[in-house]
Design a protein around this nucleic acid. Structure first.
Length: 573
DNA sequence: GCCGTTTTCGGCCCGACTGTTTTCAGTCG
């Protein structure tokens, strides 16, 4: 059983305990443990199997939870969870997730009206039964009906890249208001998470009315959901919801720190404040009543004896230790990237010619690229067989020879077939400057078979890199089942690089895996997988992913100059 | 259920808003 599965068991346990009204701190302990496991770059099974190590050394794992992890590893199930499942109807978890409902109200609906799932909830609301319950009313009943559809939709998070233009447009227009002194996105958007549940916007202004009116009337906004003196919630036309908070300028830094999150990062910050006899909230850092800091984030961090921590790292996954010891990484930036090593042309499923891609790359300041069209297995994309590929490479060399200021590699995105062979023969691959091996088909094969395929690719001396390693499509399709740590170890052993595919639907490696790859000193390449000249614009999303993994420019191979990159490549050949 | 530089019990982050209430619980972030 892998880390994610174990974490999911603990999350479910926490949900069920919450409906039962258990001690909230106990519930939080389960959620904290789940988070620790999800953020772990190594397999918890490995730790459990290692005589020299203890599960209780993990953050938030004590004696009891260590035993539960061991039970899950050994038996695949958890006695306590099985018992809870027998007591609490499974459908209540969905009821609890209807916006406006929580564990307390879900429990009340269950006990008072015997509601155990969304269908029964809907029926009861339609029949007007809910408004008569204590603690409920007409309004709550209407909210339930309005939100019940939303709760039954799964995978409803939005890609970061989809939200970005919307946030930028709203920031742009609100920043022009006379009363708005400062403005910044906050929340998971500012942390550049790969998907977002909602949006947060922070404004410094003496008076909130102008900004709130402007937001409510913004063309991207469908309707206002709530408004108080300092806080407003609106629904956008793209279904996303946005929270606006308005604070004084003296509080802007504290509020930005507070609303950027993550929740877990914030908890540690407020605890650090407490330890120093201070109180931290969104209005500032206070000693008693006296404000100590709050105007900028830097001074808030400084007041709890920390350097400023980049938002991308604020997940309470080790950033505090790094900050305390002065070892925060200098995160990679978009400008550090010198090459793009994954792209397509009209030879397969790209929309631009070799020449057009080269010109577009040069225009964006790239110093080298690899053109990597599909291999023949991807017939839908007009994938290349050996003969067409060699002709394509000839063409690339011919076009590139006329270009100044950019080096062009003849590459291939070669499928790793279902039977663990590669889609092109070794003698063909040996002629390539750059071979990306990828899984496109048979992603649902067993873990063993997926491993067999990836190991075969990694062990093939012609393969330089594994592209979009899990094959996931965010919010659409899970990746192939694999133990990434095993794959990374093999890549490290054989000197194979790993890709962060920058496309917003992929971002594969994810940040946990990329951090693990860094740990193993595997060179990581951030590439766009561009299928058009505009595809190069995706590069930043890959860089954001890398930043959340804590990568520096040095960790990323395509920040090197072309000669340096070639040296790295030669090591493998 | 976890955790420990005022430690092995007694804490565990903090506030806004809504809808239900006559002072606050629940939800949300």
């Amino acid at each position: 059983m892998n880390n994610e599965r174990i974490a999911a068991h603990f999350e479910e346990l926490a949900d069920l305990l919450e409906i039962q009204g258990a001690n909230p701190f106990r519930i939080r302990a389960y959620r904290n443990a789940a988070r620790t496991l999800e953020g772990l770059s190594e397999s918890v099974a490995d730790i459990a199997a290692d005589e020299s190590r203890a599960l209780t050394d993990l953050e938030g794992i004590g004696k009891d939870l260590a035993e539960k992890i061991e039970q899950l590893l050994e038996t695949g199930s958890l006695t306590q969870l099985d018992e809870l499942r027998a007591e609490v109807p499974a459908g209540l978890l969905a009821v609890m997730r209807v916006p406006g409902l929580g564990p307390k109200k879900a429990a009340a609906l269950w006990h008072e009206l015997q509601i155990t799932n969304l269908a029964e909830l809907k029926q009861a609301a339609e029949q007007g039964q809910i408004q008569n319950l204590k603690g409920f009313g007409k309004k709550t009943e209407q909210t339930i009906l309005a939100n019940i559809e939303q709760a039954s939709q799964i995978g409803s998070r939005t890609w970061y890249a989809e939200a970005e233009p919307v946030v930028e447009a709203i920031v742009e227009s609100l920043s022009k208001l006379r009363s708005v002194k400062q403005i910044s996105p906050a929340g998971s958007f500012r942390r550049r998470k790969e998907t977002l549940g909602d949006l947060d916007l922070l404004i410094a202004a003496k008076d909130s009315a102008e900004a709130m009116n402007a937001l409510a009337n913004h063309p991207l906004v469908e309707k206002e959901l709530a408004r108080g003196d300092t806080k407003q919630r609106v629904k956008l036309h793209n279904r996303l919801e946005m929270d606006l908070r308005v604070v004084d300028e003296e509080s802007f830094g504290a509020a930005l720190q507070y609303f950027t999150g993550s929740k877990e990062h914030g908890i540690v910050m407020r605890r650090r404040a407490q330890e120093r006899d201070l109180k931290l909230n969104e209005y500032g850092l206070f000693r008693g009543e006296e404000p100590v800091a709050g105007r900028t984030e830097e001074e808030v961090y400084a007041a709890v004896d920390l350097p400023w921590i980049p938002p991308e790292l604020r997940e309470n996954r080790g950033e505090f230790d790094l900050a305390e010891s002065g070892k925060l990484p200098k995160l990679i930036e978009l400008d550090d990237i010198r090459g793009d090593l994954h792209m397509h042309t009209t030879a397969t499923d790209g929309t631009a010619t070799i020449k057009e891609m080269i010109d577009a790359a040069k225009k964006r300041g790239l110093k080298y690229i690899a053109i990597t069209d599909h291999s023949k297995r991807v017939s839908m994309a007009n994938g290349l067989d050996a003969k067409r590929l060699r002709k394509h490479w000839d063409e690339i060399r011919k076009v590139a020879a006329k270009e100044q200021g950019i080096d062009v590699l003849c590459g291939i995105e070669c499928d790793i077939l279902e039977d663990a062979t590669l889609d092109l023969a070794d003698d063909v691959l040996a002629e390539a400057d750059w071979v990306i091996a990828v899984l496109h088909y048979g992603l649902k094969q067993s873990k063993d078979q997926i491993h067999k395929r990836l190991f075969a690719a990694i062990e093939n001396p012609n393969v330089d890199i594994i592209g979009h390693p899990t094959g996931r499509l965010i919010e659409k399709r899970p990746g192939a089942e694999m133990d990434m740590n095993d794959i990374l170890k093999a890549a490290a052993d054989h000197g194979v690089m790993m890709e962060i595919n920058a496309h917003p639907s992929r971002l594969d490696l994810n940040e946990i895996h990329a951090a693990a790859a860094k740990e193993l000193k595997i060179p990581i390449v951030i590439s766009t997988d561009a299928h058009s000249t505009n595809g190069f614009d995706m590069l930043k999303y890959g860089v954001y992913q890398a930043r959340r993994a804590g990568l520096t420019a040095k960790d990323v191979a395509n920040t090197r100059t072309f000669p340096e990159f070639q040296k790295l490549l030669a090591k493998r050949k």
